[in-house]
């Protein structure tokens, strides 16, 4: 999942501009605006079949690909 997510971020969200590593901050790159966030949520929910509760839509969980992956692990193993 983490690899897919990394590909999605670099492919669909960053679209050819400078790529990020999994621990790099997406917040600073400005890709987590409401449109980017909705695309990420949709991607994660479609791929995993999980529902991300509204409470979790905070910077800590979307700051980087690593952070999103950790959130997904936590949702899978509550």
């Amino acid at each position: 999942m983490k690899e897919d997510l990394q590909k999605f971020v670099n492919g669909s969200l960053l679209r050819g501009s400078e790529q990020v590593d999994s621990n790099e901050s997406l917040l600073e790159r400005g890709v987590i605006d409401s449109v980017g966030l909705m695309q990420l949520i949709e991607f994660i929910e479609d791929r995993t079949g999980l529902r991300i509760p509204d409470q979790l839509l905070v910077p800590e969980n979307f700051r980087s690909v690593d952070a999103m992956d950790e959130m997904i692990q936590n949702l899978r193993n509550p």
Binding site: L37, L57, V58, P59
Partner: peptide
């Protein structure tokens, strides 16, 4: 309400 009351909520 969750969006309003959660600090730093991205929406």
């Amino acid at each position: 309400e969750v969006i309003e009351n959660t600090e730093g909520h991205l929406l």
